[in-house]
């Protein structure tokens, strides 16, 4: 388990990191918490020539409220998100999702930005980020741009980030009103990744009907996706048992599901439906 040779840089500022990346966009990799990249390098599945460690860059690790948004620095660890009292009040889906990742050691080192930029098809954060309709701020030496969560995940291990871009921040519109959220997941017994993971954020109007719904699903396909038909069936209806079940039945519609020795494509689709229903019901139950 020894990686191939690589150069290593640990810049003190983001600008420095970006200019290093701009010089070698094709063979450099950004190192965040290292919990996906380092194992891949040790198996020699990833062999970057230059590793740019942004662990020493200041001010990439934070949870702030600004302009009605929750802003999370890309280097914020899973543990910081899991243990944030403020997030538990205003966006409990984030701590809940964080708590389902790996184990304590992983959560202490792994970062939300690193996970999102790696785009493992069975990672947990993409489901949450999609359900919350987050915006992702990418930065390069050419400037900054904002990418919608729906556009960020392109394919397995592929995002909309350009080779010279670094994910700097995640922005989430703080859910208002009577909102309930839940993340439910089938843990793969070996990896702990999501065989299926469903994130739900659901808001009820004064009339008791669903006014907004976000449903993100990970683990099922080559990339996490928005279950638009589930959302469509929820919005405008009262999410009782029957409506929830009927909405959730669309959780894997039109999805080309993965199969492996643990779960076939059919079974994954089935789990997506069951867990979507359970996550919606859980989210509704949490609405005060």
């Amino acid at each position: 388990m020894i990686p191939a040779q690589f150069d290593y840089a640990a810049p003190a500022t983001l600008d420095e990191a970006l200019s290093l990346l701009a010089e070698r966009p094709d063979d450099a990799k950004i190192l965040a918490g290292g919990h996906s990249l380092i194992p891949a390098m040790k198996l020699r599945l990833a062999q970057p020539a230059l590793l740019i460690d942004i662990g020493r860059v200041k001010d990439l690790s934070y949870i702030r409220e600004e302009g009605g948004q929750i802003r999370i620095g890309a280097m914020t660890t899973h543990y910081q998100l899991e243990s944030s009292e403020r997030l538990r009040e205003i966006c409990p889906l984030l701590p809940e999702c964080a708590a389902s990742i790996g184990d304590v050691q992983v959560r202490n080192k792994g970062t939300i930005g690193g996970s999102l930029a790696h785009a493992d098809p069975a990672a947990d954060w993409p489901a949450a980020i999609i359900s919350l309709r987050a915006e992702l701020v990418a930065v390069s030496s050419r400037g900054e741009r904002v990418i919608a969560a729906d556009d960020f995940f392109v394919d397995m291990l592929t995002t909309a980030l350009r080779p010279d871009e670094v994910l700097r921040e995640i922005r989430i519109n703080a859910p208002g009103g009577r909102t309930g959220q839940a993340y439910m997941k089938v843990h793969h017994p070996a990896s702990g990744f999501a065989v299926v993971g469903v994130a739900v954020s659901l808001t009820l109007g004064a009339d008791g009907k669903c006014s907004a719904a976000g449903v993100g699903i990970t683990g099922v396909a080559t990339k996490a996706y928005r279950a638009a038909q589930v959302e469509g069936a929820l919005v405008g209806s009262t999410p009782d048992e029957q409506t929830t079940a009927s909405a959730a039945s669309h959780a894997a519609d039109g999805v080309d599901a993965n199969g492996d020795i643990y779960a076939s494509a059919d079974y994954r689709r089935h789990l997506a439906v069951v867990y979507a229903r359970r996550a919606i019901a859980e989210a509704v139950a949490k609405i005060k």
Binding site: L43, H188, P189, A190, S191, G192, I261
Partner: peptide, 12 residues
């Protein structure tokens, strides 16, 4: 196929 502990499930 089960060449790593990401694939071979030892109980936790």
């Amino acid at each position: 196929i089960t060449g790593t502990l990401m694939d071979y499930a030892v109980p936790r």
